[in-house]
């Protein structure tokens, strides 16, 4: 059955306007995700899920859904681990905290968290954006990577923990270290960027040599990078309803860029 482009457009517009509300109380994650999948396949684009309580893998099971980058899901409650794992296009916005492994190996799309995130956020992330209003746990951004202009980005409003950006191979992470809470930067965590061989971490606050991996160099952000930082912080403000002009209060000299000293950190480890 063929649909005329005009009819399709009309259908899309209707679907876009309509917000599908789901109640996740007591729902098994598999059933919940399959329901979202089925509705998305029928054309639904906007979801609001209430009473989310530990259900995992939100946003994962949407492969093959047409225009899945237009899907947006507002999540109220506390979703389970691996939210947005392998996600490829949709937007997830969580009004609460998220658990571990959020955005695991994510390829494309956007995750917004109006709260804090657990451990292993954005592991192996390859594209898309993650904005965390609050703090993040341990092992965040491990082995993020990039390819040409596909550069994944994580913005963290609060603080980070140890093993941040380990084995990082690409991408960018910006850590504001509680700037918008009017807090002075806290001391950062340890083992930052161990094994790093690509990408950049921009942090507000001082970093001591003993806090970073041997493969990491500390420098100042370049002009171009500073523009990027400002751009992402402006986005952060828009998303979380903060006044955009606050971006101007960010002091460039307070920011450090952590990046790999070499694309080949282990090149000399071997005999012949």
């Amino acid at each position: 059955m063929s649909v005329s482009p005009a009819a399709k457009k009309k259908k899309d517009q209707a679907a876009n306007k309509k917000i599908i509300k789901l109640d996740a109380t007591g729902a098994y994650y598999k059933d919940l995700n399959r329901k979202i999948r089925a509705l998305a396949q029928e054309g639904a684009r906007k979801f609001e899920i209430n009473n989310v309580y530990g259900q995992r893998y939100l946003g994962t099971n949407l492969w093959g859904v047409e225009d899945r980058e237009k899907i947006s899901i507002r999540v109220y409650g506390t979703p389970g681990s691996d939210m947005g794992a392998f996600m490829d296009g949709p937007t997830l916005e969580v009004f609460g905290n998220v658990q571990d492994a959020t955005g695991n190996t994510m390829n494309c799309g956007r995750i917004i968290v109006h709260g804090s995130a657990g451990d292993v956020l954005g592991y192996g992330m390859r594209g898309g954006e993650i904005f965390i209003r609050g703090n993040v746990g341990y092992r965040v951004g491990i082995h993020m990577k990039e390819y040409k202009d596909k550069i994944p980005t994580i913005v963290v409003g609060g603080t980070m923990q140890d093993f941040f950006g380990e084995y990082m191979a690409g991408g960018r992470i910006i850590v504001l270290n509680k700037f918008f809470d009017d807090n002075p930067p806290l001391r950062l965590s340890y083992f930052i960027g161990t094994g790093m061989h690509g990408g950049s971490i921009f942090v507000r606050g001082d970093v001591e040599a003993h806090q970073i991996g041997a493969e990491v160099g500390i420098s100042e952000p370049t002009d171009k990078e500073w523009k990027e930082i400002e751009k992402y912080v402006a986005k952060y403000c828009t998303i979380f309803g903060l006044e955009k002009k606050q971006v101007k209060l960010l002091k460039r000299e307070k920011f450090w860029r952590l990046s790999a000293k070499s694309k080949r950190p282990y090149g000399t480890m071997y005999a012949y």
Binding site: R56, Y123, H143, G170, G198
Partner: peptide, 28 residues
Amino acid sequence: IPQGSDAISPAPHHDIYSIEDLQMLIHA
């Protein structure tokens, strides 16, 4: 990944530190 950069696979999956974590990735 970019051309000419080492392709490094970390020793463990950093999202798997236990059987429960493995279960999580299997189901993901």
